[in-house]
Design a protein around this nucleic acid. Structure first.
Lengths: 217, 217
DNA sequence: AACGAAATTGAACACTGTTCAATTTTTTTC
DNA sequence: GAAAAAAATTGAACAGTGTTCAATTTCGTT
């Protein structure tokens, strides 16, 4: 009798719960737990065993969901990129396109500084694992970040030939992206009292001024 | 009789050789061997055991010379920085300071591309291990790189206030340095036909033009 | 209820960095 | 030159990695 009641409870609560947490959501659950580990303990803390323990499963289960840890980290980074995207998308454009670009930069820097460990994981991944081809989903997520401020950029530099404008934008993004890697570590903290955001602002605005100056005639 | 002759041979040849290779040069010998491993097989190949095998010693000997592998890698990077320094120092300055700066940039990019694996080791080290304080020798080596083109930079932007000039130079160097991390991986190879050197040149010259434009009045 | 498919497990393998007692080599002392 | 002291070398051992896979458990369907 009691057992059958427990059975009912199991069927309609625990099981449902388990289905929610495992069946198709186990991937997302693992990603969420891994995210937590990285945020709280740093990127180094994200290992198969620690993730398994934190998630209440075994290492085998992780490897059943992800071909290897690199794929897992990529899934983690994909979510980071999506969060960055929605963080940037929520920003209000300004009348002045230069101000808008600065606003996007501020949003970017703020996101990186607020998610140092996650961004460290991402940049490190880009540095290490980019010998292998990145899947389309991931590439699209990367492109979508740039696409946010592309119209503003094209608005400001409409007079520059498309090909060169495109290249200039790539170089700018590449610079900001790679500089962001240093934001996640205390390297810059050793260099006197240089403000990290100021560095990025100087880079952006000097570069923009240079683009303007070089294309006046 | 024969044994005593062998003893003489040992004393005056093998032993001398061993003294040359171990006594005080064992550190340098290990660094040289490690360098070879990195150059030929990539930064990942540099492990204590593989270094020991390649050097004909045991792991314990390595740990007798270096407190840990991080210290070893730092010693390796120190040499890389010194090589970069002498590579840059050998460049002839131009009458036109802008050309000189471009020449230094070319030298830098060429060095990075020619020593991809070593530079990857270096940047990765900066990214990972910079939570610990870097020793003075290493910091000085870093500063000496910047010092090479500082006079030229100060020459061009003599009209800018020292404080801002200094900051501008730091930002420029930081940008180029961090962008260099992407030069060591095939990431950029996926982005159409963007030439790596062109990216750096665009960054430098646009930034310089921006500095000029922003400080005209 | 029973069968087949799918998911889960965790011990095992080959790697890491690092330590340290035992051994060998070198230097010093008599 | 021999003995004693100091220094350097060794490699097995430890605690971590990522990854695999046969055995087990759970699940879905008939």
């Amino acid at each position: 009798m009691i057992i059958s009641i427990l059975g009912l409870i199991y069927k309609y609560f625990i099981k449902q719960y388990k289905i929610d947490m495992t069946k198709d959501n186990i991937r997302e659950y693992l990603i969420a737990k891994g995210r937590q580990l990285v945020v709280e303990n740093g990127a180094d803390f994200l290992t198969a065993r620690k993730l398994a323990e934190a998630s209440g499963c075994s290492v085998g289960t992780i490897y059943n969901q992800f071909a290897n840890m690199d794929k897992f980290i990529m899934a983690e980074n994909l979510q980071t990129l999506e969060e960055l995207k929605s963080h940037l998308s929520a920003l209000m454009p300004d009348r002045n396109p230069y101000k808008t670009l600065n606003r996007y930069l501020d949003g970017f820097v703020r996101f990186v500084l607020r998610n140092k460990n996650l961004w460290f994981l991402l940049y490190n991944f880009h540095l290490q694992a980019c010998m292998h081809k990145l899947p389309r989903v991931y590439l699209r997520a990367l492109v979508e970040i740039i696409e946010i401020w592309r119209p503003v950029f094209e608005d400001v530099f409409a007079h520059i030939r498309p090909r060169e404008r495109r290249l200039s934008m790539q170089v700018l993004w590449l610079s900001l992206f790679s500089v962001s890697s240093l934001l996640t570590t205390p390297v810059l903290d050793g260099m006197g009292s240089v403000n990290k955001k100021t560095i990025c602002q100087l880079l952006l605005n000097t570069y923009l001024a240079g683009l303007t100056a070089l294309n006046k005639d």
